[in-house]
Amino acid sequence: MDVGKYDLNDTAIMQFDPQEREMALTTNDLQVYYGDNHAFYDGSLQFERYKITALIGASGSGKSTFLRSLNRMNDGIARVSGNVWYRGLDINSSKINVYEMRKHIGMVFQRPNPFSKSIWENITFAVKENGVKDKHKLAEIVETSLKSAALWDEVKDHLNSSAVALSGGQQQRLCIARAIAMQPDILLMDEPASALDPISTLKIEETMMELKKHYTIIIVTHNMQQASRVSDYTAFFHLGHVIEYDKTKNIFTFPQKKATEDYVSGNFG
């Protein structure tokens, strides 16, 4: 099927009424360039607080590039123009303290990347750097974050053993726990389950449902079932453009655009 046939400028982007709902993050005309290569065009999306928003699309659609721009992980790799509004600040501005910002907008990556340290140190390392030194307080943070990531029961008896010895699924949940331990506002997840087996994937999805009570989650996934299972809102990305953004239910049942419809029904490329 020819994917070049869709009109990339024919889009349907849902707008929230800011009076009615609280937005955690809003992007405005975000564009990303890798050198001369224009990788992402015009992303203006609003992300509601305490909801899960899924970014779906084929590989190369720009969804990961977009996500990584939300907490400046593209610094030094790509040039990003436009605005990312967070707490009334444009965090895409050079005046922003990116380190401080990233403490509030955490990220979990596609491949599990625990430090080659113990489970305990993986979680406490950044927390300690952030000024928490009290042993009891740290123990409490380790326990709550591991519990939120549904890993506590599996590792509570060997917190001092190396994180690298855990299974892939456990490592990924440890990375989620590590991000949660910083108590961020927003959690960005870049295909967190793509490298995992179905059981681990299910566990991560359960974890996310639990987490959304306290966190705003934006997740990139190429797994449509996953998007429809966990997310409240879904944005469909295609060739560097956001084609459609709506409630997840609408995207999967009554998509407005042909490209979206073809993609969610599996008639795509």
Binding site: Y86, R87, L89, N97, E100
Partner: peptide, 9 residues
């Protein structure tokens, strides 16, 4: 938080 993000750390 807004204040922290705008200042050096």
């Amino acid at each position: 938080i807004k204040k922290k993000i705008q200042n050096k750390s």
